[in-house]
Amino acid sequence: MNIMSRKEIEIQGCVEVPVDLTLDEFMDKFIAFIEENSWYFGGGMNEIVDGFYINPDGSKGEAVF
């Protein structure tokens, strides 16, 4: 019997990007990288500007720290 195992790597951190790169653009590039390697990604992403989470409407949310 051949039992397939899987390995996962949890990502905890931030990626610093140019201020004109949108979250959607970053996600497209990140997912393309994942798919080019035949990997899978499950999870979410948040945008942070000047130490604050950015709400879906573009307003500042809670402070990161």
Results as ranks from 00 to 15, higher is better:
E35Q: 14
G61L: 01
E36R: 15
I34W: 11
L23K: 07
I34Q: 04
E8G: 04
M27Y: 12
K60H: 11
F33Q: 08
E36V: 01
E36A: 13
W39A: 11
R6V: 10
K7G: 02
M1D: 11
Q12T: 02
N55G: 01
Y40S: 10
L21V: 06
D20F: 06
S38N: 15
G51Y: 11
G42V: 05
E35N: 14
V64H: 08
F26R: 03
G42L: 12
I3H: 15
T22A: 04
Q12P: 00
W39H: 12
I3S: 13
E8N: 11
I3V: 13
G43A: 02
V19M: 10
D28T: 14
I3P: 09
D24C: 01
F33A: 08
A63N: 08
M4E: 14
I11F: 08
S38C: 07
E16N: 10
G13D: 06
R6F: 14
E36C: 05
G51T: 04
G42Q: 14
I34Y: 11
L21W: 06
G43D: 09
Y53S: 03
K29C: 04
Y53F: 15
K7Q: 12
E62Y: 11
W39V: 01
M27H: 10
I9K: 11
E8A: 12
D28Y: 15
N46S: 07
F26Q: 03
N2M: 07
P56V: 01
V49M: 05
F41A: 01
D50L: 02
M27T: 09
I34A: 05
K29N: 09
D57K: 03
N46T: 02
V49D: 12
S5G: 12
I54P: 08
G61P: 03
W39E: 12
V17P: 04
V19G: 09
I11G: 02
E47L: 13
